[in-house]
């Protein structure tokens, strides 16, 4: 199980992405962070801290659960299903620039679902996508704006992100077998 990113690397990557965000948006005005559950929301909160350090501003941060928007919801015949968790976006997204955060970008279907969900919350100015790892194999025309690490993988491999908040440690691991 080769470690692809360790705690240090993850921390530096998030700092780097924070700087890119400020640079590209010329500040943090109108930005909001929304992390996709589960783990995208942890990353979003870390980015919020780091952006505050850089720009001295609190960025509104929310969490989005996309289970109810999945396109495989009623097709899945076997196996565990994701538990529906609460979506928490306690602010208006109208006219805001949304930084949508996920841990791993793969087929793009999760992001498609997240975009659908966000549209139900209002009309943002734009949506920018941040992922910690892009492992390729896209099935939809979706591209990340900020990528922590591009990781070429085979379909047989899986990428697992572990974060302190949910898993007790920070690590990204490439595993053989089992699509994740």
């Amino acid at each position: 199980m080769p470690t692809v990113m360790d705690a240090d690397r993850i921390g530096r990557t998030l700092t780097r992405i924070s700087h890119e965000i400020v640079e590209r948006n010329r500040g943090v005005e109108d930005l909001v962070l929304i992390g996709i559950r589960t783990r995208g929301d942890h990353l979003a909160r870390r980015l919020a801290r780091s952006l505050r350090d850089i720009a001295g501003h609190d960025i509104p941060t929310g969490a989005l659960d996309i289970t109810l928007y999945r396109d495989d919801l009623m097709r899945q015949a076997v196996g565990p299903r994701a538990i529906v968790r609460k979506t928490e976006i306690p602010f208006s997204i109208d006219g805001r620039k949304i930084l949508l955060v996920d841990d791993v970008l793969y087929s793009g279907r999760t992001i498609r679902a997240a975009l659908d969900a966000l549209i139900d919350f209002g009309r943002p100015k734009n949506i920018q996508l941040i992922v910690l790892v892009d492992r390729g194999h896209r099935e939809l025309p979706i591209k990340a704006d900020y990528v922590g690490k591009n990781l070429p993988t085979s379909l047989e491999e899986s990428v697992q992100v572990y974060l302190e908040e949910s898993d007790g440690r920070d690590e990204v691991v490439l595993q053989q077998g089992g699509a994740a």
Partner: peptide, 24 residues
């Protein structure tokens, strides 16, 4: 009961609709 907590949030949104049972 846990799932209902997430569902309760849906009812508090401006657009109170999710596509989970689309076509059912």
């Amino acid at each position: 009961l846990d799932t209902a907590e997430a569902m309760k949030e849906v009812g508090e949104r401006p657009i109170k609709k999710v596509p989970a049972l689309r076509g059912k």
